[in-house]
Structure formats: structure tokens, C-alpha cells
């Protein structure tokens, strides 16, 4: 790891100021992605800005929405009675990210800022049509994810909270990469009065994406069988030593059915 200056600002304004002051300054949330990257010397920040004192660790229900502060750890979301009641699929998802130790520290904000193509939260945020609130603006999920490790965030912008609309039904089905246990394929389905949204993580070449064909079919009939015969384009799938593109395309269908079944 290269050395850097460590800063732990006490409010958002100071944090933004520190980040803006230096192009090489970087935010630190749970560190579950960032610290391994630093250890491999793949990143050389001048200043590391710890966001843990900004008061962004909270969960609340407001105006029919579930609001999760950016610094809320996965484990807190998983265990939260509010989340379990209002949006159990999200608690379930959070409870299966990484391992117990990762969940104590890794945060929703860090996961979304990082936008790892095999991360779990992006699927929930996109399928639920959530809104990402930053220190300057709100960004709709459909505009936020812009391909692997790429988002609409500006370099010195900080995610502050995520607003989730509450669906009638929702579920997440994850097929874990056997080695890393990240999502090799993760499918989040969310049924609203207005229709069904389906987001796929892990599988696509361009990170998380919505599955229009699944959405159309499920909006007509929210049953696993409604997905019979609907395929996922193989040439848009990722391929690596853990699975070919056809395998991933197939798993997208299997996990989607399982998610619909779990949503009930």
C-alpha cells in the first residue's frame, strides 16, 4: 500500500471540500473493496477521506419509501426490523453479501459507488427503481448505472442515502461465484402496481441491466412459468473461467424463476 493522508471529517460539507481539494483524494466507506485495492497497490490516493463520522448510518421509513443512509452496513440492513417488514427482499439480499465480517463493515453507499459488475445491491436498486441521493442531487437508478465500475457520480460527489419505493412483491435470487462468492448471476424481481421490473447483476458484459423481455412477461403474469421459453441474449453475457456466456444466460433464466417463486 502506498502511504496517504487520512482524514475523518465530521460533516458532509468538510468531506466534500477535502475530496474536491485534491483530484487524488478518495472516499473510504467500509473499505471492503477499497482496502484490498490499496493493498494490491492498484490505487494511489493522496488523501483517504473516511466517511464514517458523517452520520449516514440509518434506516427509516418516510413517505412510503424506505430510506437507507449511505454508510449503513449490509449487516444492519439485513437485521433491521423495518427493512424486514417493509422490504424483506432487501434484507435477504444484504444478509447474503459476502460473509459476516464483510457485512459488519461494507456499506450500501460503497457498494453502489463502486458498482462492481458482480455486486448485489445494484440489482435491487435498479429493479426497485430506487433513487440515489448525493450531496448535490438525486439520481434515478435508471440513470445511475453506466457500465462496469462506472456510475453517474462525479469524482467529488458523495452518496448520502438511497430511497427505495416499496413494491407489492419482490425477491432476489443469487447464484454465487464458487470462489469469490460475489454474484455470478443475481436476479432481482420487483412487482409494482404499475408493472414488474427485473434487474440482472453478475451476468452482463456491461454490469447490471434490466431484462425487458422478462419484465414484459412477468407484468402479464407474475409466475415462474411466464418466463418459459424467454431467452437472454448470449452475446451480451460475460464469460470467464467460472462460466461461459451460454451458462450465464441460462442461469439468468433459472435465477429469475427462483426469484419470482420466492416473491410468491
Amino acid at each position: 500500500m502506498y502511504d496517504f493522508t487520512y482524514a475523518k471529517p465530521a460533516n458532509i460539507a468538510d468531506a466534500v471540500k477535502t475530496l474536491a481539494a485534491d483530484a487524488e483524494a478518495k472516499a473510504l466507506a467500509g473499505g471492503m473493496t477499497f482496502i484490498p485495492v490499496l493493498k494490491q497497490r492498484l490505487n494511489k490516493p493522496s488523501t483517504v477521506v473516511d466517511l464514517s463520522a458523517l452520520g449516514l448510518n440509518y434506516i427509516k421509513l418516510e413517505g412510503g419509501k424506505l430510506i437507507v443512509g449511505a454508510m449503513t452496513p449490509h449487516g444492519t440492513v439485513a437485521a433491521s426490523p423495518e427493512v424486514k417488514k417493509a422490504l424483506p427482499a432487501l434484507a435477504e439480499l444484504a444478509g447474503n453479501i459476502g460473509d459476516r465480517q464483510v457485512r459488519y463493515r461494507g456499506t450500501i453507499g460503497g457498494s453502489l459507488a463502486n458498482n462492481d459488475p458482480s455486486a448485489c445491491y445494484p440489482a435491487a436498486v435498479l429493479a426497485l427503481g430506487a433513487t440515489i441521493k448525493t450531496n448535490t442531487r438525486t439520481i434515478a437508478a435508471d440513470d445511475y448505472f453506466q457500465g462496469m465500475f462506472t456510475t453517474a457520480l462525479n469524482p467529488d460527489e458523495i452518496i448520502t442515502e438511497v430511497h427505495f419505493p416499496l413494491p407489492e412483491k419482490a425477491a432476489y435470487a443469487k447464484f454465487a461465484n464458487p470462489a469469490s462468492r460475489y454474484a455470478m448471476v443475481g436476479v432481482f424481481v420487483a412487482k409494482f402496481a404499475s408493472g414488474v421490473r427485473v434487474a440482472i447483476t453478475g451476468a452482463g458484459q456491461n454490469g447490471v441491466f434490466r431484462h425487458a423481455a422478462f419484465e414484459a412477461a412477468l407484468s402479464k403474469s407474475f409466475t415462474p412459468d411466464a418466463l418459459n421459453g424467454i431467452t437472454t441474449p448470449v452475446d451480451e453475457m460475460n464469460a470467464d473461467i467460472h462460466g461461459s456466456a451460454p451458462y450465464r444466460a441460462h442461469l439468468v433464466g433459472v435465477m429469475a424463476k427462483r426469484a419470482v417463486a420466492a416473491a410468491g
Binding site: K8, M32, I35, K39, D50, S52, R100, Q101, V102, R105
Partner: peptide, 21 residues
């Protein structure tokens, strides 16, 4: 997980946390 310790009652990976944190 060879590095797991408890910090404020929670088990964490001490290899993925800065001392200053």
C-alpha cells in the same frame, strides 16, 4: 478470515481495516 478480531463487539477482518479506523 485468519485475521478476524472483534472490534466493538463485532467480528471484523483486521487485514481490511486501517489502524487509524
Amino acid at each position: 478470515g485468519a485475521c478476524v478480531v472483534q472490534v466493538n463487539g463485532m467480528s471484523v477482518k483486521a487485514c481490511t481495516m486501517l489502524a487509524v479506523q
